[in-house]
Simulated scan of single mutants.
Amino acid sequence: MDDSSQGKPPTFWQMLHSILAAAFGVQSGKNRARDFTHGKASYFIVMGVMFTLVFILVLVGLVQLAMHLTGR
């Protein structure tokens, strides 16, 4: 996010930002390069799986709410 973190591993918030940007397909080249050079793949995999599970649970919850509100 800022240039002062060059050479350091990405912070939790930077990794979360990268996961969200990757999910929507809008990751910047600068952040992608930072992630690949300084980040640990295992952290991104774990956060990506957690994001996917939360995303699925939110979608299921929204469908359940819509079904409840329509009386089905």
Rank of each mutant, 00 (worst) to 15 (best):
S28Y: 05
A23P: 04
F55Q: 06
G48P: 00
A33I: 14
D35P: 00
V49H: 02
K40L: 15
D3R: 13
P9V: 06
M1N: 07
S18F: 12
D35V: 12
G25F: 03
P10W: 01
R72Q: 08
T11H: 06
R72A: 13
Q6K: 14
T37E: 15
I19M: 03
V49G: 00
K30R: 12
P10I: 04
S42W: 14
M1H: 11
K8P: 03
Y43D: 11
A33Q: 15
R32E: 15
F36E: 11
F55K: 00
H17N: 13
R34P: 02
Q14N: 02
Y43S: 08
D35R: 09
L57H: 05
S42M: 11
Y43R: 14
K8Q: 15
M1Y: 05
G48L: 02
F51K: 03
M67I: 08
P9G: 05
N31I: 08
G48T: 01
L16Q: 13
R72G: 05
Q6R: 12
V54A: 06
L53E: 04
F12H: 05
Q6H: 15
Y43K: 08
D3H: 14
S4K: 15
M50S: 05
Q64N: 06
V60E: 03
V46L: 08
Y43C: 11
A22C: 09
A41K: 11
T37G: 02
K30V: 09
G71C: 02
F51L: 01
G29S: 07
D3T: 08
M47I: 00
S42P: 02
Q64T: 09
S42H: 14
L16K: 13
H68L: 15
G25K: 04
N31Q: 15
A21F: 05
L57E: 03
A66G: 14
M47W: 01
M50Q: 01
L62C: 06
V26R: 13
V54K: 05
Q27L: 12
L53H: 02
K8D: 09
K40R: 15
T11P: 02
Q27Y: 02
M15C: 11
L57F: 06
V49C: 00
L65D: 09
M67F: 10
G48A: 04
P9F: 05
P9A: 09
M1R: 10
F24G: 07
Q14M: 12
H38V: 12
Q6M: 07
L65P: 00
N31L: 15
L16G: 07
S18Q: 05
A23V: 04
I19Y: 00
G29T: 11
S42Q: 15
M67C: 07
D2V: 06
V54C: 03
K30P: 01
F55S: 10
I19C: 03
G71D: 00
A33D: 10
S42G: 04
G61K: 02
I45A: 05
T70A: 15
T11N: 06
G39E: 07
P9D: 04
T52M: 02
Q64E: 09
F12Q: 10
V58M: 05
F24I: 12
G61A: 01
A21I: 00
A33H: 09
L20H: 09
A66L: 08
A22I: 03
R34C: 06
A33L: 09
R72V: 08
M67E: 06
T37A: 13
A33N: 12
V46E: 04
M47D: 01
A33Y: 12
Y43L: 14
K40F: 08
R72W: 09
F44E: 00
T70C: 10
K30F: 06
L16E: 13
P9L: 05
